[in-house]
Write a protein that binds this DNA or RNA. Sequence first.
DNA 1: CTGATTTCTTTACCTATGTAAATGGATCCG
DNA 2: CGGATCCATTTACATAGGTAAAGAAATCAG
Lengths: 191, 191
Amino acid sequence: MISLQHFFTSLTPVSTTSWEQFAALFRPVTLKKGDYFIRDGQLASEIGFLEAGIMRAFYRNAEAVEYNKHFFINPCFIGGYASLITGLPNQINQQALTDCSVQVARYADLQALYPTCPDIERGARILAEQFFVQKERREIDIVLLDADKRYEQFQRDFKHLEQLIPQYHIASYLGITPTQLSRIRKKRAGL
Amino acid sequence: MISLQHFFTSLTPVSTTSWEQFAALFRPVTLKKGDYFIRDGQLASEIGFLEAGIMRAFYRNAEAVEYNKHFFINPCFIGGYASLITGLPNQINQQALTDCSVQVARYADLQALYPTCPDIERGARILAEQFFVQKERREIDIVLLDADKRYEQFQRDFKHLEQLIPQYHIASYLGITPTQLSRIRKKRAGL
DNA sequence: CTGATTTCTTTACCTATGTAAATGGATCCG
DNA sequence: CGGATCCATTTACATAGGTAAAGAAATCAG
């Protein structure tokens, strides 16, 4: 299992003193299945590192319909990143689909390290760049692929996840209804 | 008109020596209407700052159908950002819709400044964060809004642009056909 | 085990949007 | 002026996908 230390230092080398200051900011938190890490409407103030468990990120529209936009199945950073950056209200929800263990830090404390720990700020830059790349990849999938292809892509991106969560979550991720996903699955089984 | 210097220093303060090294990397380039700054399939190696003019960014699918994903109407950085970061082939096209003036630098030269100019790297971090926020905002629009609402959003986001470019570019940005955009416009006029 | 709940599939119908082709304005040349 | 080109609109038809409701299957709790 990939630790916070392993994850961060794979972004960029970090000096011992920087790492100690960085690691000291985090405290362990347990999320039960169904718990939220962040909800829309809130101001984000904390960043998390998901050590174990599965979470989903989703938007809710004006009619309270949910649109899954991502599943976290591997250790990675979570949180209302856009809200942390802009200081504007968060628009995303992040919810545990299984029990999860998370390391949590105040984002302001993390930012306070940047002036004295350029290696930490470098990690933050690289992380922001990777977030951007992920988003662009997903954008391309949405724009260029039809629902069938996005389903294939989902299966590649989230190996084994399909068996672990209800299908309406997958349909929501694909931007279709469970009805339509069922049609796609049926069509594919017939081939 | 916003210069590269004005733009960058509004992200974060930059020391004189850092700025001089940074500015020295750029050379002016002129793009004629229709010219490309970057095409899909290429490896990106340069970053640009659009000083004046209008450009579009678009994807092309396997059938060569184009999907506009952004219009650059104000001074800002351009380039195959994901390709610069990952070193993988670029997937996006960026084309001048009017004659444009651009300041161009080799991305590797810019990166080479990071170890000695933490203020420049900080600017890069902030820029990456802002790119992320922009993408997320656009993602939310695409997921949560129908074509009518996205059209309204387009008109707010790109004031006056509608008069300057053909409608099929707008339709492509909205993810619909010119036929459908025509129907939307007609319906709205009737109200 | 059994009833209750949740999830998945299916059916019937409906709507938004796509495709293709025709029409009609603009606009640009020569 | 008069064709040529480009662009927006319109029409007719086709299709992907939505909605609602019912039924089937799986899962869970007592």
